[in-house]
Amino acid sequence: MTSLEIQAPEAGVPARWKIPPQLLLIGPGIIFIIVTLLLPLLAVVVFSFWKTESYELFMDWNLENYWVLFREPAYRVFLVRSALGALATSFICLVYAWPVAYFIARHGGRYRLLLVLLLAAPFFTGVILRIAALQGILGPGGLINMALGMVGLQPIEALMYTPVAATLGHVYLFMPFMVTAIYLSLVNFDFALLETAKINGAGPLRAFVEVTWPLNWIGTAIGLILVFIPCLASAVTPRFLGGPKSTSFGMSLSQQFGETGTWALGSAMSVVLFVVSCAIVLLMGFTINPRRSGFTGGRR
């Protein structure tokens, strides 16, 4: 064997091996989330222990804001009302979104993307306009009740300025999130597993319960969170569709930062809202068993 002269290794190791590339890729995102989400939330937590006097925040550590929230029953009513509304909306979305997402993922063929985009397209029209249009359709002078009136029937009271109308509005606004979340899970699901289940004697329902549902639970749970959280904080929809008996926690909260200018109390309400949201997310998190989710975690 003849060995050749070996050249000295290049001076200076290429940058690729120096800075871990994952840091370059992930770092900006982490910094961004810290600056635009974490620090502001932290600020709100701090402010919730301060005081507002004549529209100005003052550093004066106290628990008064939380005491107010605890003492005044109105806030509790708002919170419970919002939570129940959010629960109802999530449930309706869950039940309706599954077959829809399933159909798109399984039978959508090459038009899958288009069918999903059609669900997202209404978002090009602003929330307020769509809510106003819903009001125009459901309200007293709206399409449905006018049509009923023309054929001599009573208008449907439940659709006008009631919590039912507000829930309908929420379902309208957040259903696409639910469908999309389940769809994204289902397109990664191997439908051949269902054949296996059926060959082994499971009926369609059994196969769904034993195979499809558990393997797509993460996507479904994300969908539920995506519906529940904004519903819980919703302010605009109940204001326009809900009528006088639908003041929500979000409405009251945004008033603190708007009309009444009581930022400290608003901050405390924000903290409560955040804690409730976190509790829900954690609750969902506990139901997820990554080892049984079928998610292998990327590489190899």
């Binding site: 002269e5 070996i6 050249q7 290794p9 290049e10 290429p14 091996w17």
Partner: peptide, 18 residues
């Protein structure tokens, strides 16, 4: 990337080359 050792291809040490 090896923990130790050198890789020489065509007479050039490429151990640290991408």
């Amino acid at each position: 990337l090896p923990d130790r050792g050198t890789v020489v291809v065509g007479g050039q040490d490429v151990t640290r080359q991408p």
